[in-house]
Amino acid sequence: MSAATEKIAFLRASLARVDGLEAHARVSLGHPTADACLRGGIQKGALHEIYPAAARDEAAASGFAVALAVRVAAKKRVLWLRPDFAALEGGELSALGLLEMGFDPTRMLLLRAADAASALRAALDALSCKALGAIVIEIPGAPKILDLAASRRLVLACAQTGVTAFLLRMMAEPEASAAETRWLIRAARSHPPSGALARATSPASGGGKEEEDWGSPLFETDLVRNRHGRTGHWVIEWSCDDGLFRTANPGAVVSAPSDRPAAAAMERAGRANMSRVA
């Protein structure tokens, strides 16, 4: 056993050298099974893709991106890049919303690019700045410029400085890329809807201390691609106070895997064709 694992470890290390990728640290998400799957957490200095699993899950996907940025960036700045028209479709990133999720808005830099091409160009430029904690590139649709070569360039730029990049692909089908991980995100129901409405109808002026049904942000995450580990499917909760993910409470309703979008299946088929490093 030991000989085999050693050999694998050696091969892995030599592959990493060939790739020119230094091993950057991994940041734990706080969710034990997800961390185990990711071998300790989300890889720093790599490209991670985040897709909303369905239409109208864009807000959940951006929430997940913010949460990951909080984990990875620690106290450093985060640069959020997006083309101009993204705000019309999905709304403007809100400073108070960031604050409520546990991210200090003063640490956020926002770049409004004219189009996807200049957003990518700026991302490459920004990835050369070691002082950044993470960058989030929000690209709506599937512009031609964002192809395998473009994602490869991003991966190399990330690896060189150790800055982590999150590619937030709104309104797009997953396509071939060189990313380290790919996440499909959908919003999860916070509680079974037992009489929640009835209670909420009553005036909320009763001191504001009463228990709310509305809980922390909940994500149903589908890790459909992981270059250095297994994939998985979890419902995880973001704790805004601690800046950590945690296991969602058992009351959460999880939709059956059967209703996952066709995209996930396509992705799995497509992945088989792609060469894998590990």
Partner: peptide, 8 residues
């Protein structure tokens, strides 16, 4: 839970 939306 957050009281202000992330996207406005």
């Amino acid at each position: 839970a957050p009281r202000r939306p992330l996207r406005l």
